[in-house]
Design a protein around this nucleic acid. Structure first.
Lengths: 240, 240
DNA sequence: CCAAAAGTGTTACACGTACACCCATGA
DNA sequence: TCATGGGTGTACGTGTAACACTTTTGG
């Protein structure tokens, strides 16, 4: 598809002295479990940077979209499709990779720890690390993680993306614990509950989760349809 | 710097079958004048897309940062350095450019219409267009403009970037008119004034601007120092 | 019966929003 | 003197933030 254009008049002139470079994508993959935000990283088994910790990424191929490359990587390592993933920003400093010139598009993803393929992850040497106990990562990957955390913090407040980190069915205390991990501060139980429920996008189920208390807490589901309808009418979700 | 690495062991293996592609940057350049947001675009004089309207952009060179390329382009066409510019997002679909595979990083810039180099702009065939009377642009540039507008709208509310579009000295009515253009809705004079001044980041000057009324309106300056101090202490700017 | 987490209401205050009139000036 | 845009204050309702006790149940 691209090669055949080489012969065209004009185009060839235009492009011929331009520089080509590698384009990569790196995934900042978040999970949440027992009160902690987690990040999926792996120890590189080949050069360059063999033995060092790194985000999971890939070069973008000529025939694939940048976002497609990120989805491919994510599926290869977790077995998951249709995961929440969004562009973070690009990393394009000329000297960011001492090997070759490479521009990387950072993408952050939110994963349910209950759903991914554990064997696949292990095969790739990938490990979930608590977000506040990360080792040094290669290149500018530390910066990417920092940037992704800030974006998550800012975005989770006004858009219901936090639910992507919880199981389909979750309790209000779990949800609160998640937001406390994202915001890095404690929240008032009563106000949190009030605020969350006032958004009218949670469906209360008849089941209870007894895994963390004797009394048990009611399970809820996020109501995607209701959320869509409400946003159409110019409603604003918020959890603070 | 990059060529010399070709000979290294391992690295060569690693990179050799990867695809290289063009990386470009396109600038969404905003201005503001007499109540209207404006965009700087130009009519292409060479193939490809000769004669069509386009954002101003450039391929990124091997030795320059992506942000450096955007700055270079902006200076080449407006003569301005140190302009507010920020990454919008990347545009990386495999088929976005029918000529060759090219990933573009969109960057939006905010310019003071009082300061740029008019001759330089003319030389390049660039023209300021009202944002709501734009012609069709090449490739996915229409989408870029849409995205940039949304980002501007979202960002101007919580960060004092609007001032980048006004002269150093401006009046409150001018500022209000700017925000009305960004938000696409009318604002209440009294509430706007109250809100803006309550942020404590405007310095009232002793001069008046009489260009738009007989009585004249007091001029203000944005107080960068005060803003920095306040943000350090966890203060939140907001104009709504 | 006790420990541990779930669940519930009220009050004070700040903030956003709606709203109408006088002021200053040049022509 | 009048037309034009600049500048000001108040009242009301909404939303936020602070705060403590009762309920449930398994061990």
């Amino acid at each position: 598809m691209y090669e055949e254009k080489v012969g065209e008049e004009g185009l060839q002139d235009f492009y011929q002295e331009k520089d080509k470079m590698y384009v990569a994508t790196d995934c900042i993959i978040f999970g949440f479990d027992s009160g902690n935000l987690k990040l999926l990283i792996f120890k590189r088994r080949v050069e360059p940077f063999k033995g060092e910790w790194s985000l999971i990424g890939s070069f973008v191929k000529l025939q694939e979209d940048v976002s497609g490359a990120a989805k491919r990587v994510l599926e290869e390592i977790t077995g998951l499709k249709n995961v929440f993933m969004e562009e973070l920003k690009s990393y394009g400093n000329a000297n960011r990779d001492p090997g070759y010139r490479c521009v990387s598009i950072g993408q952050y993803a939110l994963i349910r720890l209950s759903e991914y393929d554990k064997e696949l992850v292990e095969e790739h040497g990938a490990v979930w690390h608590d977000i506040d106990e990360l080792p040094k990562l290669v290149l500018d990957h530390d910066q990417m993680v920092q940037d992704a955390l800030e974006k998550l913090k800012a975005k989770a407040r006004f858009q219901p993306i936090g639910f992507e980190l919880l199981p389909e069915k979750f309790t209000i205390p779990q949800l609160q614990s998640l937001y406390e991990a994202i915001y890095q501060k404690e929240l008032d139980t009563r106000n949190f509950r009030k605020k969350v429920l006032s958004n009218n996008v949670l469906i209360k189920l008849d089941e209870k989760d007894k895994s963390s208390s004797k009394r048990g807490a009611f399970l809820y589901k996020f109501d995607h349809d209701s959320y869509k309808n409400l946003t159409k009418r110019g409603y604003d979700f918020e959890i603070s």
